[in-house]
Design a protein around this nucleic acid. Sequence first.
DNA 1: ATCCTCCCCTAC
DNA 2: TAAGGTAGGGGAGGAT
Length: 1213
Amino acid sequence: MSEYSAIKFGDISSYMRNKQAKLVNQNNSSFNKKSDLFNGLALHINGYTNPSFNQLRQLIIENGGVFLHYLNNKSDVTHIISNNLTPRKVIEFKHIKCCTPDWLLQSIQIGRLLPWQNFILNTSQTQPSLFNYNSPNKQAENLLQSDQWRRDNTAQSDQFLDSYYNNSRLHFLSSTKATLKDLVQSAQQNVTKEHLTDIVPSRTYILHVDMDSFFVSASLSLPKHAHLVNSPVAISHSTSQSSSSTSELASVNYKAREFGIRNGMLKTVAYQLCPQLVTLPYDFQLYNQITVKLYEIFLQHCDHLEAVSVDEALLDVSKIVHKMGMANGHADNAYELSKTIRHLIHSNTKCDASVGIGSNILLAKLATRHAKPNGIYHLHDHQAAEFLAPHQFDILPGVGSETKRKLITQLNVSTIGELVSSKSMKDVQHVLGKKNGETLWKYCNGIDERLLSYDKKRQSVSAEYGIRFENVNETQKFFANLSTEVSRRLKAAKCKGGHLTLKLMVRRKDAPKEAAKFLGHGVVDIFNKSAPLSAIGGGATDDDGRINECAWRLFTGLGKDARELRGVGLQVNKLDHYGGGGGDDGEGAPAKRRERDTESIQDFFKKPAKRTKQGEQQATSSRDSVSGASTSRQGVAQIPPQAARAASSSADVVDISSDKSMDTSTTNKAVTKQPFKRPQPQPQPQPQPRPSIKIDDSIDTSVDTSADSITSTTSMPTQADRSVWKAIPRSIRREVLDERTRVKNALRTPFKVPMKVDKKSAEKKSAEKASKEKVARDGKQRARRSNDAAAYTPSHLLDSSLEPAIPVTITPPKRPRLRPVPVTPMQPPTPMQSMQPPLLPPPTPSLGLLPTQADPSVWRALPSDIRKEVLSEREASKSKGLPHQDEAQAETEAQLSPPLSTPPQLNLNHPAISAPATPLATPSINLKPSQADADVWKALPSTIRREILGERMSERMRGGPAQASTSAAAANETETSNANTPAHPAMPTSALPSPSQAIPNSQIDRTVWRELPSSVRRNLFEEMSREKKEREREELKRQEVGRAKEKEKEKEQAQAKERNGANAGAGAGARTNANAIAPRYLPPITHKSQLRAQRSKVAVLMRKSEIGDILAVMEQWLDVYIEHGPHASDINRVKMYLHKSLTEDSEGMGKTRTLLRLWKRKLAENFEDGFDSQNSQISRVDVAGKWHQAFEDVKNSVDDIVIHRWGCRLSLR
DNA sequence: ATCCTCCCCTAC
DNA sequence: TAAGGTAGGGGAGGAT
Ligand SMILES: Nc1ccn([C@H]2C[C@H](O)[C@@H](COP(=O)(O)OP(=O)(O)OP(=O)(O)O)O2)c(=O)n1
Ligand SMILES: [Mg+2]
Ligand SMILES: [Mg+2]
């Protein structure tokens, strides 16, 4: 297709250009030549331009350029000049460099030709003109007024999550994919394709099969829609023909694409491009049916299969093609096979598929694009270079707008061909990093060493709910629901997790309250916070109550105003799989693998060890996470177990024995090295000889015979094969390590672990996973969903309100459960108070289940099946009750202690003022790090205190030493550092980095720093480093920009100013991990950082956005310096902090008041009661004066603002 | 050297 | 009315 025909900028075209230049310039000889600035350029002007067409033309010619009136031959033009291109032109010019007129104007102004790369026309800029993302959605604004409507349509109802996921196409895609992976995995494990086992193919053939505009094709396959086949059709939620709908189009047929409409576009935009567009509703069930048929076909026609998506898969057909070749030597048998597959698909589904064929995944995928719609294309190795050369980088898989931009701006190349001819792999690595650089460079050269992947275990499970909105303390209920959801997904996937990450999307300060897209999340900052997650007895968990507690703790820790939330996500990782080796998503997902309670430990370790046979590290960690419940709430029938069976029915042998299948399931990837033989411009790695693999049993055997059996409990990490090590569940790894270092007797439990270790070292490379497919196609329209928000977000520190994060909990005596019962504050619900998140953790199973002989850490590290085994064993022998913890006792303790999940705090009228430290006062029991003294304890931010409390608590409950690596480390470190603590505070002795290394102006006192447990130090340090890093990054960008982009800078600043409004320039305390999510369809935001005002130097800890933390810092400051008097710089920081608070934070007044009251009270306590004290009276008076002066100073500056804004002074009463 | 954590980015 | 979910590769940089 012409789209792919090479466009060369070689010698011939320059010749032509020059020739034409003469002609053109002759025709325009009326212009006076002024410079040779544009010599060698052949420019075409299209669409609207700001200096008019004629003005530009004159400038071009006057400065030595060639003006091309018509675009007869695209290869004649070097650049197109435009301010705005129609979507059609965007497509037409997609292989031509398009710049804005500013390029020319500025070059003329400066007198030299500026790099065109700095003036690339952002073709997505055509979108905002069709949809304004900055204006709030009026419809939503109105509807949200109604309480009833909100009750029915926001996160308040239990149904909400269900119905949300029920209608979410993206959730459908994600969950179905998870299911498909399982399907494929089990199908391939249970099938022995005997007719293929002996075949050793000489070449690799990968087919990439992808349905054409899948959702639309599916719908149009129904008789009732047959009449639409030649119309432009799209799938979207909104069925009304209202052209103002902000619904997204999931899929768009090829007719509609002629109008420039793309998958993912907003309906309102699409209508502007094509008013006749017909939109049809989703039919998830139908898609699922088709998918099942599709995969049945796939499974019947491949050696190996990688599920890519609902409508798409990668098939390794090397053996099949080889076999075909034995009968029919000459034909392109891959092509023939593709025809068969396409035919089968069409006859079974009435939908069209396209097939791309290549010797590796990359080429196959590229071929598919070319094949579409409804075709086949075999991209041969020798054609690859030519095929690739004219394309932009984003046709490559894994390359999106960011990567593309980096390449263009930093390497000064705009096409793959240019890169290949002028850049080395090192050049690319310099821009993209080591691995990505190598990958990208190889892709550009047609090389792709990825193997099909089909046996990875998931690594995380998450449920995210974008879109608003938690208006009040329904937030809490929503958290419970989301926790339950995640818990369900974990169980469905047969895993438990050890770590939880909370992700919050918070409306960016400058974004409209109501997003432009109906109920969309709008432009947001993203905040992540994570913490270890554990069962009551320790160890990984899937319990919704535990998840909820943890999530809620994290939420309060982030201290975000619930009203500003636009999305919440919970992700669980550090998964331990107990389901027998493969994740198994989906409630209804077939039980392909029987869980074997009796599975021996040998087996348990043998499996992963065997997996490493292939030398793929990926093998050992199949799937790290579980996601999306594959719950198919769309009412879609789960992919039935028969599918797998049916699919395999064509295979010669179906192996039904689960046991066997488990033991024989070893290969994770088909080994399909792709020799890419054509001569390469750069030396490239020799294609590895294609190992002759045998599937299934053969591998099993070979492993068994080659493996050494090592019984080892203590020398694992060093002696055993690395990959084996990796294959062990991480919690166990941790234990083994602990074992080694602490020489604990932990493993001397009932479990002795004989390990089968494959001595053969796993070669580590090649495991690139890389993401799949089409970046480019939807890419222009697809917005960047995340980008460096920090740039525009001045002060996240100030985001928090005083109020929201502080839950009130009580522990009712009645409750037999461990968990404290949170109760919503009884105060009249002022708006603020209504934001108080109460805590409502669901009931938990009682504990006391622990087989008590085992070291708890070991116990919880064990996979469930082993635990079960042990339990039953124990029950049988019913013997020795080792000192084990009594359940009742544990409960008692728990009830007496501060609740785990919610920091006890305060009375919400800003209790912090009247009794700031009370709730978190030094714990009476020995919960705090024993070595740290009370002052240090008090000095810690409340979150950290809470964390430590939590750790200690669970530790106590477990009746053992701290097991979590963090708490263990904390305990150890505390001792160590304590011992080392020199008398002099200023002496840097800690082995750990001092905060000043990251943040020179850190306010953390060194002594305090040293007192911190190492885990805490680590956390703080991490945070500080992040800040530092970001500051540096900004600085760097600023320089980069300054160097190269005189113009773009201004442009972006202007843009950002628009966006940022009043906030630009006031960037104190932004959290580093905050990311703005740009609206879709907005051009990628670049160089955001320059706009960002210098980060304030407010003390590191002040960056904690939670008010409790801020108060803690304040208190710390006061406590530490009360004797010495305040430093001017610190006073200044406080001043700045309050200033920003007041000007940027809606809750700033309250915060300021709280802080000042705390301060005032402290001064009163320390000084007013008479600086009578004993000896140092004079200096004390002096110090008191300084403190009071400082206070007045700050108060006055606060009042300046307050008076200015509200006309009166801030009352501290 | 390799791990771990917190991101960013990408894909459908 | 819309339903912008979710898993995974990899980089940066500190910890081990
Ligand atoms: N932004 C997107 C992209 C895709 N999809 C859904 C609808 C698509 O039909 C399906 C498959 O995605 P493809 O990328 O394969 O796109 P299509 O199949 O629609 O078109 P084609 O493959 O012909 O380009 O995924 C979606 O909901 N939103
Ligand atoms: Mg498709
Ligand atoms: Mg697809």
